[in-house]
Design a protein around this nucleic acid. Sequence first.
DNA 1: CAGTCATTATGCGTTTACGCATAGGAGGCC
DNA 2: GGCCTCCTATGCGTAAACGCATAATGACTG
Lengths: 291, 291
Amino acid sequence: MLDWEDLRSFLAVARAGTLSGAARSLGIRQSTMGRRLAAFEARAGVLLLQKTPRGYVLTSAGEAALAEAEKMETAALAAERAITGQDTRLAGEVRLTTIETLAAEVLMPILAQFAADYPGILVKLISSQRTLSLAAREADLAVRMARPLGGDLVIRKLGDIGYGYYTSPAYLARHGVPTPGGAGHRVILMEDDAPNFPEYVAMAQYFAEAEVGFRSDSRYVQLQACKAGLGVACLAHYLAAPQGLARLPGCDANREVWLVQHRDTKETPRFKALSAALVNGMKAQNALLAG
Amino acid sequence: MLDWEDLRSFLAVARAGTLSGAARSLGIRQSTMGRRLAAFEARAGVLLLQKTPRGYVLTSAGEAALAEAEKMETAALAAERAITGQDTRLAGEVRLTTIETLAAEVLMPILAQFAADYPGILVKLISSQRTLSLAAREADLAVRMARPLGGDLVIRKLGDIGYGYYTSPAYLARHGVPTPGGAGHRVILMEDDAPNFPEYVAMAQYFAEAEVGFRSDSRYVQLQACKAGLGVACLAHYLAAPQGLARLPGCDANREVWLVQHRDTKETPRFKALSAALVNGMKAQNALLAG
DNA sequence: CAGTCATTATGCGTTTACGCATAGGAGGCC
DNA sequence: GGCCTCCTATGCGTAAACGCATAATGACTG
């Protein structure tokens, strides 16, 4: 009879490719993971993961087992959600995830009020680079900058975020207002040109003839670069407006903001409470957000 | 993040209804099971199993979790079978299950030869009262007295077992040959009248007017009762014929013998080897078995 | 109503599994 | 080639989990 925790370890190693990576994903030590895998294979009697110079790769025997281990994981996560969904206390922890600027500038005042209203609920605000999975219970609620699709998700629209081209007064005085094409101007962009955010795509078109003045993946760094006169940035109104930057014409991009949670935890009281607070709080800031 | 082994423990308790029963089913102690369940519920934060005077019963929260835990078990068993199915060694353990008499009288000589042919393979012969589940990996191969239906099973017919009415020469001398109806005779039956084995049903009809002389669930006990002159028993030819009992007319019941294994382990060499030995060995005894 | 058999709860000693620390490779990059 | 980083392997001490034993409780039976 195989140990279910060992199956989980096997799954982690098969995914990560290394003992260390697998151990990290489960929050245990690499030495422990190595021993567990050894125990698992000893009991299985078959070699499931072959050690190669590039890490562990599945044998053909392992592939068959992997498929079932993944089914186990799916069921385990569903069980976890089912249990959470049955938690009727108006207390405990809620993990909310969204992008950094929205969290800091828009959500914080809402959460401050919420903390006062529900002292028993602890909100954990996670602003991860990576989009966290609600299905995998990496977070309970998510505020997303686009309408999520598919999955067993429940979604509510929180509002629209308007974007504009901004620059510092000093830059404006020296270079003037850019015309379409942006010839002779400098723009502040993301590290990679990959992102297909609507406002970013529009900017790439509008400033097709401009040069790159600065690059950063952090909106806050972009904001500071903008204030320092390094060029024109495409920023959300809520972020740029209070900073005394000059708003330039030519941008009418906006993005929808959606509140997302998993269907299984829809009825959980503490999630409902935070959800309602976010909907109301965002509604009150509608004018600022749209610009 | 819930512990998968705890989920398994929860499932066991939900099924068994008691900590002790659950512990037995997993091969651990009752104290351990109690502590695991406590840890599980503490982490879940919700009461999943309510303790009642009659044992543990699921709360509504628990029912949701149970369904997922059962899916996990299904996947875990499938994983185990997948792993076993990939074991290419012509060595190791094979667990074979069937009824007691067939095991002792018919299978033993076949297994003795098999043990000599394949010294690396250890055959475990389990003659359990209860029909063991191949899907749950309680056994690897099963010799069944009826054609199994459904499931992901692979089946091969091993032959037919003939039955006859037998009694001791002394009983026969005193009571004569029974006529249809069996009036004035005594029959040896099972403990309960429930079993719907074909030969048993036929006997109940044929001896409708007879009295009950003895009851036992063990065929060996029935055999001895028969030899002791307690009445007429319906016994398989292979069991009764070598014992010097008198065979009576009126019985033409027979049952098919099938070899069963799970589809997932069909290709495993050591199972294939035993399977072939059983098929050949049974074929050689066809005449004796049919009577 | 006592006796039996099942259950759960708890204390104690031991084993096991774990984290930590360290040593020994195996690429990747300047 | 040397350095850096990430990996795996292994020894050691500790802490958590386990088995065992026992007590307490409750249900069924004669």
